[in-house]
Design a protein around this nucleic acid. Sequence first.
DNA 1: GTAGGTTTGGCAACCGGTTGACAGAATAGG
DNA 2: CCTATTCTGTCAACCGGTTGCCAAACCTAC
Lengths: 366, 366
Amino acid sequence: MREEGGVAVMKDDEAMEDDTVMTDDQATRPLDRARRKSAATIYDIARLAEVNPSTVSRALSQPGRINVKTEERIRAAAKQLNYRVNPIARALPTGRTYTLGLIVADITNPVLFGIVRGAEQAAAVSGYTLVISESQESGEREATAAERVLPSVDGLVLGTSRLSDEEIRELAELKPIVLINREVEGVQSVLPDLHPGVDKAVHHLHALGHKRIAYLSGPTTSWISRRRRDAIAAVAAEQGLELLEIGPGTPTLEGGRASFSSVAAADVSAVFAYNDLMAIGLMRESAERGAAVPAALSVIGFDDIFGADFTTPPLTTIRTPLDEAGRRAVRTLLGQDASRDELPTELIMRGSTAPPSATRLRGHIS
Amino acid sequence: MREEGGVAVMKDDEAMEDDTVMTDDQATRPLDRARRKSAATIYDIARLAEVNPSTVSRALSQPGRINVKTEERIRAAAKQLNYRVNPIARALPTGRTYTLGLIVADITNPVLFGIVRGAEQAAAVSGYTLVISESQESGEREATAAERVLPSVDGLVLGTSRLSDEEIRELAELKPIVLINREVEGVQSVLPDLHPGVDKAVHHLHALGHKRIAYLSGPTTSWISRRRRDAIAAVAAEQGLELLEIGPGTPTLEGGRASFSSVAAADVSAVFAYNDLMAIGLMRESAERGAAVPAALSVIGFDDIFGADFTTPPLTTIRTPLDEAGRRAVRTLLGQDASRDELPTELIMRGSTAPPSATRLRGHIS
DNA sequence: GTAGGTTTGGCAACCGGTTGACAGAATAGG
DNA sequence: CCTATTCTGTCAACCGGTTGCCAAACCTAC
């Protein structure tokens, strides 16, 4: 009787002869490898095909290295035994796991779905498995997660890293790293080109007659939040718009709601939110406080997440092709994509902007 | 020069002496393990602490087995070398990978976020890593994905399986399997208790005065779709409501939109959709065709996904605690949860239902 | 002081592949 | 026909841990 991962496994060998009955007792005994079929190995094939295991290995992984006749015999034996190569056994000597890691701040944050999906697809296409970990917006947890998956992956994508540049460089010394929405000297990254979307958005607000606008920022640790702010600031200055920064805030619906009073107090007629989640939260809070968007306040988000067009009014937002970002990050990791181009953003014009209202928002501060 | 996963790696050994310069050349050479720091092993520790590697292994994984003094010396050496156990090397002899697989139909389907998050959390808490794979609603791809991850996981959660009972049983012979929203003889599963939510929803429609309602079904291969239909049918019959089945449909926004004409043709005043995505699609299509929800048509969804309350009107839906389902599936896999209770559903009453309208929907068929 | 029991740590086999080196067979070239 | 190549398959080491078995060292108690 031995310990297995803290779960004591008992009655290891009773009733071994009866394999067909699925007793309740067995059903509740977890991760019990003992009585399950174990997979065929190259040794089984070797015995069946009457060759040396190394020949099997070569026949299967280096077609042409071995005599066609023999290779066929081996392949037939492999098929007969329903052989699958054991990725773990293969990874040990070669160091290649055919697994990639993806660490994101929050799996359930719809902002990241695109990244996850794109990365998963690109990985699957190349025969790689993707392991997704969550850092919950915490740099410390992110470091732990990275350390945990690092030994068993061939490379790592940091989707929304909250680590310091230094920590990221240290990781990059151990395994190939690709960053999304973050730039660190000497580490590869996939970045958005904010100009097309931001330019158009700011011009749009200017054309509507806005004079004083705000940027509702995300977490202080977010590199991309600062970058979005700077991009907006540059265009705003050029257009003679006054830009305030409100924040930092939590990049969630709640964070957006919570920002309402600061927004109202800031006396602005339009707000760029760090992301759509905050934008939607702000819109809803604003509406509930009697200041309907866009009449009383114009709101523009970032990302164009799932559901951004469900809202009333539908959210105007600056879209980054996130699935493309995820896909490209993985392809870069696999060396299939050398392009350094930034991914163009795009303004998705919907209904959350309007000319500034005569009535000020101030009255709505509770 | 050898092949690595289809990517030819060249210039393998030039400039090996210069480790500090991060040339562009190096940056674009992917998955190149060669010149990176390689992690410390128990052999390094053994040398440093002047003991046998097996002693190191014991000191680290079986506290108490070794003399306290020696153990401390070993731990110190391990810390000094910043040692992390290599999960792959550990998995090979033990067969335990501390990794669990989760296969879902579609990662970006918000219905499944809850499952993913719950599963990830439960796994992380117990020190397990979760590998998520996507089957894209295809049984064949699901089988491939399962086969692919099976050798490297200790167990598998099938989130939205499209496999046959027989295929599932075969998988269950190889590794522990837990199903969500699906029941197969002899395989563990986590199921919702549809009664509380469905009862309340049907009663609610009855009370509003509806007489003839429809169930907009999901994919034919979806076990849970049939189950939802049956649960509704049972209560509808009891309440004297006429229930039509429309479908099968694709469980997406588009699928919901596409169903509109059938719904209109069916001449019903209320619709249960297989899931929220379809419900939202239907609502929007309906509104765009001039038949506003809920005035012209009442709609009730399933799941209460992210964004279900963003819509106009906000969607009334039957919520299943999906993160709890994901969590419980993993805990069951790990043998930490023997409870067989079904997860109670709950009616989330919002704004997409109203008394049946006098005007029929028929006129809206295009 | 010694028989008996318990710690403690080392040895070596093993998990399931991969791969460099090599020998014998087959083929080519002169 | 003999030597030089090329082909083909085997041997054995290795990846980095885990673990059964054993012997030496250490206690304990009589």
